[in-house]
């Protein structure tokens, strides 16, 4: 049985490491989107620039929502490791709500742009903006989905080792998305006004 536990611990460590490598590949995927945005953000073909379109307070709200969710996500993992089921669920519940709020603000911004005729097809600047920010939003969506399903399983099965491991991976993913957002906030939103 000792053998079996050692086997599991080694497997755990490998999964954490492999997931870390996966996150790095995801970061490289984002680097292409950042590169395209940096190269193309001036090509508006006479249309409005980022300075005309973006509202900084909204971007700040989004940033703070995501940062706070990253914090509560960490607290949730801490609770999970101490085997406190309800504390875990509450922390991740708050994280989920904050993430969903973030996503709704982003959707609101996107729909406003689209209603004013500023779409993906308008020019290279908007293409790269929508795809960069949208890809981040898609990651947030999949993170929320993952969080929802995991919380469902915690409710059903209680906190077991396998689920704590999943929460550890999830929190890694969530922190990682916050880091990507720092750069979107800085380069896309603040950068437009610099």
């Amino acid at each position: 049985m000792v053998n079996h536990e050692a086997h599991e611990a080694a497997a755990d460590e490998r999964v954490m490491f492999g997931f870390w490598v996966y996150l790095m590949t995801d970061l490289l995927l984002f680097s292409v989107l950042f590169a395209s945005y940096s190269v193309l953000h001036g090509n508006t073909v006479g249309g409005p620039t980022g300075r005309d379109l973006f509202t900084l307070p909204l971007a700040l709200q989004e940033t703070i929502l995501l940062l706070t969710s990253s914090f509560t996500c960490g607290l949730g993992l801490l609770a999970a490791r101490s085997n406190k089921k309800w504390q875990t669920l509450i922390c991740f519940g708050i994280t989920f709500i904050l993430g969903a709020l973030f996503l709704s603000l982003e959707m609101k911004e996107f729909t406003e742009f689209i209603h004013s005729g500023q779409t993906l097809q308008t020019n290279a600047f908007l293409s790269s903006f929508f795809v960069l920010v949208g890809t981040h939003g898609l990651h947030i969506t999949s993170g929320l989905l993952w969080m929802g399903v995991t919380m469902g399983y915690i409710l059903k099965r209680g906190l077991n080792k396998a689920l704590v491991r999943k929460l550890a991976l999830l929190s890694l993913f969530w922190h990682f998305l916050d880091i990507v957002w720092i750069f979107i906030f800085t380069i896309v939103y603040l950068g437009a006004f610099a």
Binding site: S36, L40, N43, V45, Q121, N123, A124, F125, F130, V131
Partner: peptide, 16 residues
């Protein structure tokens, strides 16, 4: 979706 990353017409850049 008709984006303009690499189509010069909408400000895109084929060299990218």
């Amino acid at each position: 979706f008709g984006a303009h990353f690499f189509t010069a017409l909408g400000g895109g850049d084929p060299m990218m």
